[in-house]
Nucleic acid binder design. Structure first.
Lengths: 419, 419
DNA sequence: CGAGATTTGTTCACCCATTGACCTTATCCG
DNA sequence: CGGATAAGGTCAATGGGTGAACAAATCTCG
């Protein structure tokens, strides 16, 4: 599964803090930079524009681009249509249909699979509803493997999957393939990667796990970069994945703040009132007991299998539902304010079911944020709904796989020279 | 895949911030790496060990070291005394007495100044008690400038101050020299750098501002690296500066998590109970209203000018003081637990007066942390007192100045070639 | 005590990636 | 059509790390 990450024998990948920069590192680093620029650009670039953006000479940039084109990571499209003097540049775009990442998603109420290409397009996807509260991990793994098999079987032959990543609403044991604790699935200490490896469609792939909020946030950075014309680096936000549980991810300058073990962002267990209701985690007054989907349903007087559509429908008539949402939104606001005081970002993205409930939650959240965030006076906080599409965690998982290639195309090229 | 490696996530000041790696960058980067290794090593290194640690060849490392020695940033000491076969290496240490940073500190109850050299030694220091609640910024700046003048006047002539950094318990407007909001000093929108520049001792220096908790945490990383034999990169912790106000800083792999504007870590305004007492910041139930020094004094039935020594003395006899500390510690515990759920570090360092109250606060904090931190089961949280000495913010401010040189010695060498 | 082993620091010819000047190509403008 | 402008390509030059070879300093063992 995991390739050897012996920092010593393999060529140093980039100019990391730990390792010295050797001269190979220069090209390794610059190749990664160029590929990233192409992949994350909101619109196709040319060699000249890449050179200017990265501060490289045109010759260097051109040489690097040529290598990426030869490796089928970048495509040369038609010449740009210019409205100025000078030779038009050749437009460059991430290669479509070659290298791709397989994203899998386990969620409390469904499974999802999506294959994502370097250009961001979906090359295949599938979804399967199902209640996974207190589920059997082996059975879920079988279903997921089956679903993945259906999708991969229909891929064009030239597509090359470089790996798979599974989104789980859980704390993960970093690097080991083990789900440490997934309260809402009822899992604990489950080696999900091992279970998935048994399925023929996945046996040959390197499989890693990722937290659902982290991966959804990854998809969100991409979606916002494309939609908003902004590059990924310019993005800092707090992502909140509201489902039965409440996950969170903190993105600073396009990079997730992972923390020491990758367990950052557990906003569901921020304290709203230390003497509040008891939480499944053992503590009292956690956000999840105020604003988790099941709690919202219960306080609304609705059954546990009420859909979000039904909830939205009832909201129009029932004051009880409105009160419940208001109660939740105020608690979310307190947790968000606490978080922003700790991590200083100016944007909050509501994802999961919160995205669909956005209009009913945002006012309450904004009220608390205005009065509680110390810096809000000088840096107004922006609360927005997620723009990444459905099953964003599966999309993000695909990107996570591709990130491995984009972060070090030189290694990928070397590995694929003589297969 | 390789993303899962610790310490790899931060982009690091690799080369040009966002730009491509040019060939000069290689040396720039490696010089910085070597100097950092020497400065942050708990014990003197040799050329060969530097090469091994950084993955460079001995020839390259040796060449870089020679340049640093020539620039008087690194000193060659005596040969190491070996207990093994082989030629003994020449021990290397950061140059002492040459380049140094001037650290200034404004605190609610005192001012402090310290000059820190590259080897960490203090080349001069001073301290002046005084109550700066609701103070006049201009008057404080005059006192501080005067104090700095006393210290700098007595420095040996070969000491070269590369700049100054002022610690303020405040939100700062990044880069502008302006104190945005310092509630406990009663300052708002004060251009402190401008005020300090008027003093003759500081006129020629580049002056920057820094948050007190951030700078104390900077001193703490250094102190722990030296004391605990651990390198700076291996350190992740939450630093809490308990004073009249409560500041915080989050350090991941030796680097402060700054956030979008450098306002991260305001743990004093984490919510303990959303319907709790009103805070000076306008919100309700902030930690500061449970565990700020003035609140502890008040709940203990002591006057606002009671010293910490007096407080500790009373603690032995007065149940009211004990109750007050317990009340505070439980609140700190809730805030710490909330923070650790959000940022995932396994160590909490109590600084400021909390370091002196450590024995009375730690049990209560640990109790809350155990029951509230989701990951505490697998990664036990360590609550420890700060080890950096008194006026650690002034020390950290000195380091902040020196960090500028260590991060880019090539530039510093170029600037000092023909002065 | 001396030979061999071991490890450090230095030297130098070599190699690799970027550089920049120069050239060609493609378009726009008057 | 000719000049201006900009993109892409070529190639000798340059900067900087590489690695083999060597000298120096110490330890170990016969």
């Amino acid at each position: 599964m995991n390739k050897s990450r012996d920092g010593r024998s393999s060529p140093v990948q980039s100019l990391s803090p730990a390792g010295g920069a050797r001269q190979q590192s220069l090209r390794t680093h610059n190749l990664a930079l160029v590929l990233r620029a192409v992949v994350e650009a909101p619109a196709p670039l040319t060699r000249a524009r890449i050179a200017a953006a990265l501060g490289l000479t045109r010759s260097t940039a051109s040489d690097l681009v040529d290598r990426l084109v030869a490796a089928r990571l970048v495509d040369e499209l038609e010449p740009e249509l210019v409205g100025r003097a000078g030779r038009p540049g050749m437009l460059l775009a991430p290669h479509r249909g070659g290298v791709a990442g397989l994203g899998l998603e386990v969620q409390v109420d469904h499974l999802a699979v999506r294959v994502t290409a370097l250009d961001g397009s979906s090359l295949g996807e599938a979804r399967l509803a199902g209640d996974h509260r207190a589920s059997d991990p082996a059975a879920v793994a079988r279903s997921l493997g089956h679903l993945a098999g259906q999708v991969t079987a229909q891929l064009p032959t030239q597509v090359e999957l470089v790996g798979a990543c599974v989104s789980v609403p859980a704390l993960l044991r970093s690097g080991s393939g083990v789900v440490q604790l997934a309260p809402n699935l009822g899992w604990s200490g489950v080696n999900l990667v091992e279970l998935l490896c048994e399925h023929p469609a996945l046996r040959t792939l390197a499989i890693e796990l990722g937290n659902d909020a982290d991966l959804s946030a990854r998809a969100e950075t991409r979606a916002r970069a494309v939609a908003g014309q902004s590059v990924r680096e310019a993005q800092s936000f707090l992502y909140i994945a509201g489902e039965v549980g409440i996950g969170g991810a903190i993105i600073i300058d396009g990079e997730p703040a992972r923390g020491q073990h990758g367990w950052s962002g557990e906003i569901g267990h921020v304290v709203i009132d230390r003497s509040g209701p008891r939480c499944a985690c053992g503590a009292t007054g956690c956000l999840e007991q105020y604003a988790g989907l099941d709690v919202i349903r219960r306080r609304s007087g609705l059954s546990v299998d009420t859909t979000v559509d039904q909830l939205l429908d009832r909201e129009r008539r029932s004051i009880r539902v409105r009160r419940s949402l208001q109660w939740a939104s105020s608690a979310i606001g307190v947790a968000v304010a606490t978080t922003l005081n700790l991590v200083d970002v100016e944007r909050v993205v509501l994802g999961g079911v919160y995205a669909r409930l956005f209009d009913h939650l945002a006012p309450g959240i904004e009220r608390e944020v205005r009065s509680r965030v110390l810096a809000a006076r000088w840096a107004p906080v922006d609360v927005v709904p997620a723009v990444a599409g459905p099953d964003s965690a599966a999309t993000g998982a695909g990107w996570r796989v591709l990130d491995g290639v984009v972060a070090d195309p030189a290694r990928w090229i070397a590995d694929h020279a003589h297969p």
